[in-house]
Design a protein around this nucleic acid. Structure first.
Lengths: 225, 225
DNA sequence: ATATGAATACTTGTATACAAGTATGCAAGC
DNA sequence: GCTTGCATACTTGTATACAAGTATTCATAT
């Protein structure tokens, strides 16, 4: 597992949660991998308690599966979970984007513009690693701009199902049309064109749907069924 | 606080979580009330650990606010949280109901029919206590019927913001038009009338929006601002 | 060779101990 | 009366101890 150091003023629980999320999404922790509370605590240099609390958080969204007295495991990719996450993201992103149309301005708008500009910059330079982070940040900024940050927070753990598949997609098919999508969505928001924005969000999220068949054939051991 | 006994095969954590949820929604634990992990553990006859784990779960959705080394408190009613919960419920209920239109049948449909019949029965008898439970169950059944149970589960804690206000509404305005709403929604689903269903869901959830001004004037001490 | 069973080394769930920060009350001093 | 400061009794965060269940391994008996 990949360990980044514990940040100052970050609690042990937040540290464990952050490291777990990073490694699950990046597939450093492969689907099906057993997770021992004791072992992870030792690796992170903290005690079982905060590690356990982080695992409980992930287990609530079925990202980790815990079987009492048997063990905990990184959940294998379950197409039903991925679809639930995609479905939820579809409807909330659409609704939030509609609210954003014509209402975002000032500093909030500037942040989003900067974000998209950076995506285009890194895409141009071929530094695609940065784009994932910027992608997530792009969508989060829209949620914040329309005052729906709690919804974004509540959904974040569930979206690991989705993000993980997205990461495999990139490992395998290398598709960066998403940057163009983001640009187009931003322009639609600025223009206040709700119909166009909704259509773009819909198209944007359906990109990840197609990849599943490809991934499954390449990494069948990652899948539940 | 109201204590129901610990169920057989229910873990201590689930017990604490269930009792806390019940008492927060019913307003037995009033907004602003301090919650001590030690005290609650003693009341429930379990140790701090599972109590703490339950509190963490509720704190994640801002239902409880924890200040390290100071204390934890039942969150006061925050109109922004209530609106986020209502907004989320609006869009997911609508999307799920649209999927349900014309696709639910057999045992699944029968369960929902029975649920609505019971609501009408208890409304008629004036046993309105039962209706809250049936109300929640009605909506959950629809989520299950279209295979979106994880979304329902993930949202359940956040909906406490909404359910709590709904409960005050009933204490104060006694409005049971919701039963008629449920009947109408069910009929629209059976008829496969998506337009009608979406309109009904929209109207249904907006009922609770109006009550806020009334509640605020009656129970200002429950509100954050 | 095969089946049986006990020892062992794990697992998570729960309880408890300790650490460190905070609010409160009260007494002392001015 | 008012302020200061310390003792005290809380709080949550973290670490550790104990309980109970499970899988494995290896020796023994058939």
């Amino acid at each position: 597992m990949r360990l980044s150091g514990k940040l100052r003023k970050e609690s042990a629980r937040d540290y464990a949660l952050r490291v777990l999320k990073e490694n699950i999404i990046s597939l450093e922790l492969k689907p099906g991998t057993p997770i021992s509370e004791n072992e992870l605590a030792a690796e992170l240099g903290i005690s079982r308690t905060p590690v356990r609390e982080a695992i409980i958080d992930l287990a609530r969204a079925n990202v980790i599966e815990t079987y009492p007295q048997k063990g905990s495991f990184i959940s294998k990719i379950d197409p039903k979970m991925v679809e639930e996450a995609r479905f939820l993201r579809q409807i909330t992103d659409t609704a939030v984007t509609l609210e954003a149309c014509g209402t975002i301005e000032g500093e909030r708008l500037r942040e989003i513009e900067e974000n998209v500009a950076l995506q285009e910059f890194y895409l141009d330079k071929g530094m695609t690693d940065r784009i994932f982070e910027l992608d997530n940040r792009f969508h989060k900024l829209i949620y914040i701009a329309v005052g729906k940050e709690l919804i974004h927070e509540i959904h974040s753990t569930l979206m690991i199902h989705f993000d993980r598949v997205r990461n495999i997609s990139v490992e395998t098919v290398k598709d960066f049309k998403v940057v163009n999508d983001h640009r187009a969505i931003l322009e639609a928001i600025k223009a206040g064109d709700k119909e166009k924005a909704a259509e773009l969000v819909d198209k944007h999220l359906h990109r990840y749907k197609f990849d599943e068949a490809v991934i499954r054939s390449q990494r069948p051991e990652y899948f539940k069924q």
